[in-house]
Every structure is written in C-alpha cells, then in structure tokens.
C-alpha cells in the first residue's frame, strides 16, 4: 500500500513542470500546458478534469509520448526497470518499448475498420508477443469475455454501437496486460446505463488486475464513481490535486463557505452550474483583445 509520504516505488508516472506550446500560425506560440506538476500513483485511478480547452487531451498526448514537450519531465516508473525513464529523452525504440506497457482507450475505440473484432484484439498480440497462434486465440477469447463482447467477435466495427465499440476498444487496449491504461473520455456520448457499465469494467480491471488508470472525463457522475484521486486543470495549470473526498467536499459545500476563486470555480465545474467564476473572465480577455486591440 502507498505510504503517506510516498516512495519512488509507489509511483507510476511523475509529471514535472511540463510545458507544451503550439505554433499559432502567425509566428507566435500558444502555451497550452504551463508548468504542470503532479504524480500518478501505482494502482490508482486518477481522473483528469477541467473546462473545454484547458489542455486535458494535450496532457494525455504528452503522457503517451505522442507529443514531445517543450519543457519539464515525464518520468515512467515501470515494473522491472530500476531507473525511471524520462519520455522526453526517449528515442523511437524506447517509446515503442514503453508503449507495450500501457494501453489507450481512445474516444472512438480506434478499431481497424477492415478487421473483425477478434482480429482487432489479436493484432497487438501478434505484433508483440511470441506465443503460439493457438494461445493467442485463447487470449483473444479471454479478453472479449472480460468486456462481455464474445458474442460479437466476428462482427466488423461498423456493425457495433458506440458502447460496444468502447468495450471492444478496451479489450484491445488490454490485450498485452498493460501496467497503465489511459482513457480519453470513456463515457462521452453514451447513455447513463451504458456509461455506468463501462465504469464498472474500468473499476474491475483496476481493482482485480491492479492496473493504474488515468482517465480524462467530462462526466462528473462517472468521475466521482471511479476516481481514487482527481486533478483539476485550469488554463494549462494544476488547480488542485487530491483525494476524491476533497473534491466531494468542494462540490457539496455551501458556496458561501468556499475558500477563494479557485474553490468557487471548482464548485461550479463539479456541479455543472452555469453561474460562477467560469463564465466571468474566461472569454472576455480574448474578446477584449479582439475588440479593443483589434488583434
């Protein structure tokens, strides 16, 4: 169990002062992540939240090595590796080795349209493992059983509903028994019942197989159901990271008792209310810039 102080071995990923900028097209840059620092603990489910455009997907892409960072470090503490590996310093070979150790569930499920569900799940196994084809078949069956999609194994992705695609994507993401699973909006576009079923599945994987889970989500019901800890981003920075119960306190508090703008902003966000600091200044500065400065 993680000790209160936390030693290096309790960590799965350590994000240190990460900066990410994109070119704006007019020669300038937009700084999307502005010194992001937090830790992801081994075995926990960490939910990343924040308003639209605050940098959640960008952060996820940096974590999986899809985007290179402009500053800071992302350290992976993987099993059987004595030293943490900084993905900012990794070459393509190193990244490929790391990619075998984590799985990603993209919004669409990211299945190959020209292959059946079973073939989609088998693909990473064929690419990265050395076991016999007969054993790969068995593993595919086990993975599809885990997500309750065995009956659909011979269907093509286009024949599946959104929720089924998510399940199938999860079977594929877990094909190589990853140490870490990244989820980008796993319940977006799903009805509440289907969304709750996906949550159950995620919790099952995390509790029974001790997979570390990093989840970007907008769905607050889902977030509070699955999270051990939560991190709130705002304008490319970490506003708060803490246990789920700390966020529950802010959500359920009487607004008058909240401490400062940050807590009021989080209260509004967590309750999904339209009134509060989120609507105050955010669009205005940009609006002001365009109107007044004519930029």
């Amino acid at each position: 169990m993680a000790s209160a102080r936390g030693s290096a071995t309790d960590l799965a990923i350590s994000v240190r002062d990460v900066v990410k900028e994109f070119p704006t097209g007019d020669g300038g840059v937009i700084r999307v992540l502005d010194g992001v620092t937090f830790d992801i603990r081994r075995g926990e489910t960490l939910v990343i939240m924040g308003g639209s455009g605050c940098g959640k997907s960008t952060l996820l892409n940096c974590l999986i090595g899809e985007y290179s960072v402009n500053g800071g470090h992302i350290l992976f503490f993987t099993k059987n590796m004595r030293e943490p590996a900084d993905i900012a310093l990794m070459d393509e070979d190193g990244l490929n080795e790391l990619r075998k150790r984590y799985g990603i569930l993209f919004q669409s499920g990211a299945l190959f349209g020209s292959m059946t569900l079973a073939e989609n799940v088998a693909l990473p196994l064929i690419e990265h493992s050395y076991v016999d084809a007969s054993i790969i078949d068995i593993v595919v069956t086990l993975k599809l059983q885990q997500v309750k999609m065995l009956a659909h194994r011979n269907k093509m992705p286009s024949q599946l509903s959104g929720g089924q695609k998510k399940r199938a994507g999860l079977a594929r993401a877990t094909a190589l028994d990853p140490e870490i699973l990244f989820y980008d909006e796993p319940s977006a576009g799903l009805d509440p019942v289907t969304s709750a079923a996906i949550d159950e599945l995620m919790m099952d994987l995390s509790r029974k197989l001790r997979v570390t889970s990093v989840v970007v989500t907008h769905e607050m019901d889902s977030a509070f159901r699955i999270a051990d800890r939560m991190v709130m981003l705002d304008k490319g920075r970490v506003l708060k990271i803490g246990d789920r119960c700390e966020f529950e306190r802010i959500r359920d508090a009487d607004p008058g008792t909240l401490d400062g703008r940050d807590e009021r902003l989080m209260h509004q966000f967590l309750r999904g209310a339209s009134e509060g600091p989120i609507t105050d200044a955010d669009g205005m500065t940009e609006f002001e810039k365009l109107i007044i400065a004519g930029e």
Binding site: V131, I135, I136, I138, V139, L142, K143, D177
Partner: peptide, 11 residues
C-alpha cells in the same frame, strides 16, 4: 501471471 500465461494454462 499475465494473459499469455493464462492462455497457456487453457491450452
């Protein structure tokens, strides 16, 4: 034991 290990047991 990972899935390939479990797969081996099934085989």
């Amino acid at each position: 034991i990972d899935s390939s290990g479990v797969g081996t047991l099934v085989e």
